[in-house]
Write a protein that binds this DNA or RNA. Structure first.
Length: 631
RNA sequence: GGUCCCAUAGCUCAGCUGGAUAGAGCAACUGCCUUCUAAGCAGUAGGUCUUUGGUUCGAAUCCAAAUGGGAUCACCA
C-alpha cells in the first residue's frame, strides 16, 4: 500500500511541488495510537525543497492521494505529519488474504541460496551448560528463520573431538578411574552416569593433578632445585622472579601466572598427555580404541541433551576428519608465500597490514591449532556442498577476533566465498552472582536447568492449569512444552549481540513478557475455536479499532521474518509475537466473540482469532517453541 | 598498552536505516472472575536515554571525545 502511495507521489511530484522528488524524501512511519490513520507520511523532508509550510504540503498531498489512490478516503494533518486512513474493506481484504494462506509469512521453499548454519560445537570434555543453551537455541532458530525466508539451510556442528584436551581426560580416566570387582574402570553402564558427565569428571580430575604437580615444581624451584629442567625454562623462571621485586600486587600476580605456565609445561602428567596425542596422531590402535570409546559415551550423552533441547542437525563435522586438510592448506599457503615459517618450523601469518597481529597456524612440532582446523573445516564444507553460498557460525563474541582472522585468511587463500561467511556473535550469559566460571563451580548445567524448568512448569500448571481429561503422557508433554518454551523464549527475546543476565527466578516466570504468556493466548484461542460453529468472513464487515490494530500487526509478519533473517535475530520475531499477543489479549478481554449476535461481526472476530493463533504458532515455531492447544 | 563490544525506569529488556508526548515486563500500589481459559485485562506511580561537544529544521538513534563495564591480543580450544 505504502509502495503504491510512494510511486504515485513520485510520478506526479513535479506537477505537485514543481520538482522531482527522490525515493528517500517520501518517508512513512507507523501512525501513533493517539491519532487516526493507517499510515503516516513525514512532511519535513519536503518542506525545504517545496518552500511551503507543512500544512500546505499536507493539503496538496492529501487531496492528491484522495483523488488518485482508490483506497484512500481520508487524511488529517497534525504538525508535520500527514495521517492517511484506509477504509475498513481494505483491512478485511487483508485479513481475508491472510486467512486464505496457510503458509502466511513464509517465502517459497528453496527460493534463495543454500546456507549452512553452524551452532553448538561443543568441547567433548565439558558437559553442555547455560551458554550452550543460548547458542543452540539461537542457531536452531536462525536456521528456521532463514528457511522461512526461503533459503535452503544445512544445520551443522563441528565436534571438537581431537587435540590435547581430549588426551587429558583419556589419560585421567586411565590413571585415576577406580576398578570395580569385575576389574572394569568406570563407564556409563556401571556407574549410571551420563557419558558426557563421566568424561567431564575425568577432565576435571586431570586439571586437579595437573595443578598439584605444577605447584610442587614451583616449590622445588623456589627452594633452588633446578635439576632435570631445561636451561631456558630455568632462565625464564629466574627472569620472572627477579622482575617481581619491588612490583605492585597486580604485576606480581601476573608474573606468578607466567611462572605457573612454565611449571605446568614441565609436569609429568602433561608430558604423558602429549605423548598420548602423538600416539593418537600416529593412529596407535590402543589409544584409538580408547578415544573412540570415550567419545562414544560423550555423544550419547550429548544426544540426550539435544533431544531435550529440541534441536537437530543435518550434518556433523568432526575435527578429527578435517584437521589434515587444514594442514594441507597451511602448506599450500606456505608455498604461495602467504604464510611464513620461523626457525623452529612453526608456521605463521603476518596480518599487521590489516591492523592485526601475527597468528600461529602450525606448531613447531607440526601439530595443528584451532585456526588450522577451522580452515580445513570451512574448505571441506564448500567441497561437500557445491551449491553452498555461505556459512553462519554461531559462536560467542569472545571469539570475534578469531573469526575476523579466519575469514581474512580464507580470503587471502583465494576463496571468494569467504566474504559471505558470517560470525553470528552472541553475548555471554551472566548470572546474578557474576560470570560463569567452570573452575569456581558456578556453571549452570544444561540438563539440570532444563529439568528444573520443566519441574517448575509442572508445579505451576498443577495450580492453575486446565487439564481435565488429559492422560499422564499428555500432561508430562505439556509440562515440557511450557517449561522449555519459557526457557527458550527467555533466552531468545534478547538481542543476540548483547550480553544478557540470566535470572533463574525470571526464567520460570509465567506472567508478563514470557513464553507461557504467548502459549496461553494460543490455548485460549484454540478453546474458543473449539466452541464455535462454522463461520465465514464477509469482507464487507465493519470493524472496531482493536480488530484493525490486530490485522495491522498480522500484516507485518512477512516483513518481520525478512528483518529477522537479515539481522540473524530471533529476538525480532519474539518481540513481534509478544506485541501481537498483547493486542489480541486486549481485544479478547474487552470484546465478546461467541456471544456476539451479529453474525458478520462474529465471523470477523473468529477469523481474526484463528489467524492470530496461526501466526503465533508459526512464529513460535521459528523460535523452536511449541504451542499447546490446552494449558 | 593495542583492537573490538556495551551503557535507556529500582531490576530485566524493546526502540537505534534521525521525526509527534522514549515503550514493555518484573517489583510497588488500585480495580475486574455468576459471560468465550484471570498464565489475563484496566489503571496509578516510576526517565537530565552515562557525560560533554558536533552534524541537523529535528538526535536515545549519526560523528568525536571522556567515564564506567566487558571481551580479546596463547605453540588452549
Amino acid at each position: 500500500m505504502e509502495k503504491l502511495i510512494k510511486s504515485a507521489i513520485i510520478e506526479k511530484s513535479n506537477h505537485l511541488f514543481g520538482f522531482d522528488c527522490s525515493d528517500s524524501l517520501i518517508q512513512f512511519q507507523k501512525t501513533k495510537k493517539e491519532f487516526e490513520g493507517d499510515t503516516t507520511l513525514v512532511l519535513f523532508p519536503l518542506m525545504k525543497l517545496a518552500g511551503k509550510s507543512p500544512q500546505e504540503i499536507g493539503k496538496v498531498l492529501g487531496d492528491f492521494l484522495k483523488d488518485n489512490v482508490r483506497c484512500i478516503r481520508n487524511y488529517s494533518i497534525i504538525g508535520g505529519f500527514l495521517n492517511v486512513s484506509f477504509p475498513n474493506s481494505y483491512w478485511t481484504r487483508q485479513l481475508s488474504e491472510i486467512n486464505a494462506d496457510s503458509d502466511f509469512g513464509l517465502a517459497a521453499k528453496d527460493s534463495k541460496p543454500e546456507i549452512m548454519v553452524e551452532y553448538s560445537s561443543p568441547n567433548t570434555n565439558k558437559p553442555l551448560h547455560l551458554g550452550h543453551l543460548r547458542n543452540n537455541f539461537l542457531g536452531y532458530s536462525v536456521a528456521g528463520i532463514l528457511e522461512a525466508f526461503g533459503h535452503k539451510v544445512i544445520k551443522t556442528q563441528i565436534i571438537n573431538d581431537r587435540g590435547i584436551h581430549i588426551c587429558k581426560s583419556m589419560l585421567a580416566w586411565q590413571k585415576f578411574s577406580p576398578l570395580n570387582e569385575k576389574g572394569e574402570r568406570e563407564n556409563p553402564e556401571n556407574t549410571g552416569m551420563k557419558g558426557d558427565k563421566l568424561v567431564g569428571k575425568y577432565y576435571v580430575e586431570f586439571d586437579k593433578h595437573f595443578n598439584a604437580e605444577a605447584k610442587e615444581i614451583i616449590a622445588q624451584w623456589n627452594a633452588g632445585q633446578f635439576e632435570g629442567y631445561p636451561k631456558t625454562t630455568i632462565a625464564k623462571y629466574e627472569e620472572f622472579t627477579e622482575a617481581k621485586k619491588g612490583k605492585d600486587e597486580k604485576a606480581v600476580s601476573g608474573l606468578n601466572d607466567k611462572i605457573k605456565e612454565l611449571a605446568k609445561n614441565e609436569t609429568p602428567i602433561l608430558k604423558e598427555a602429549k605423548d598420548l596425542l602423538i600416539r593418537w596422531e600416529g593412529r596407535d590402535p590402543e589409544v584409538y580404541l580408547l578415544w573412540t570409546t570415550m567419545n562414544g559415551w560423550v555423544y550419547s550423552g550429548f544426544n540426550e541433551t539435544y533431544c531435550k533441547m529440541g534441536v537437530t542437525f543435518d550434518r556433523l563435522y568432526y575435527e578429527s576428519d578435517t584437521f589434515i586438510l587444514g594442514k594441507d592448506l597451511v602448506n599450500e599457503g606456505l608455498e604461495k608465500g602467504i604464510f611464513y615459517q620461523k626457525d623452529d618450523r612453526s608456521v605463521w601469518i603476518d596480518l599487521t597490514d590489516e591492523g592485526l597481529d601475527h597468528k600461529l597456524l602450525l606448531r613447531s612440532d607440526g601439530t595443528s591449532v584451532y585456526m588450522t582446523q577451522d580452515l580445513g573445516t570451512a574448505v571441506d564444507r564448500f567441497n561437500d556442498y557445491p551449491e553452498l553460498t555461505g556459512i553462519i557460525y554461531t559462536v560467542g563474541n569472545e571469539q570475534d577476533y578469531h573469526f575476523k582472522v579466519l575469514f581474512l585468511i580464507l580470503e587471502k587463500l583465494g576463496y571468494s566465498w569467504a566474504k559471505s561467511c558470517f560470525h553470528l556473535s552472541y553475548g555471554m550469559v551472566d548470572l546474578p552472582t557474576g560470570k560463569m566460571k567452570s573452575r569456581e563451580g558456578t556453571v549452570v548445567d544444561a540438563d539440570d536447568l532444563m529439568d528444573e524448568v520443566i519441574e517448575s512448569a509442572k508445579e505451576m500448571t498443577a495450580e492453575r492449569g486446565h487439564l481435565d481429561g488429559m492422560n499422564d503422557t499428555e500432561r508430562e508433554n505439556l509440562y515440557k512444552v511450557i517449561g522449555m518454551g519459557g526457557l527458550k523464549y527467555y533466552l531468545l527475546k534478547v538481542d543476540p549481540k548483547k550480553r544478557m543476565l540470566f535470572n533463574p527466578a525470571e526464567s520460570i516466570e509465567l506472567n508478563g513478557h514470557t513464553g507461557p504468556f504467548i502459549q496461553y493466548a494460543h490455548a485460549r484461542i484454540q478453546s474458543l475455536l473449539g466452541k464455535a460453529n462454522a463461520f465465514e468472513l464477509d469482507t464487507e464487515t465493519e470493524m472496531g479499532t482493536s480488530e484493525k490494530e490486530i490485522i495491522k500487526q498480522l500484516v507485518l509478519y512477512p516483513a518481520i521474518i525478512e528483518q529477522a533473517a537479515k539481522e540473524y535475530a530471533p529476538s525480532v520475531i519474539a518481540n513481534y509475537t509478544y506485541e501481537l499477543v498483547k493486542l489480541f489479549n486486549q481485544f479478547y478481554q474487552n470484546i465478546t466473540i461467541l456471544n456476539e449476535t451479529d453474525g458478520k461481526q462474529k465471523a470477523l472476530r473468529l477469523t481474526l482469532s484463528k489467524n492470530v493463533a496461526k501466526v503465533i504458532k508459526s512464529s513460535m515455531h521459528l523460535l523452536g517453541i511449541e504451542v499447546p492447544d490446552r494449558m
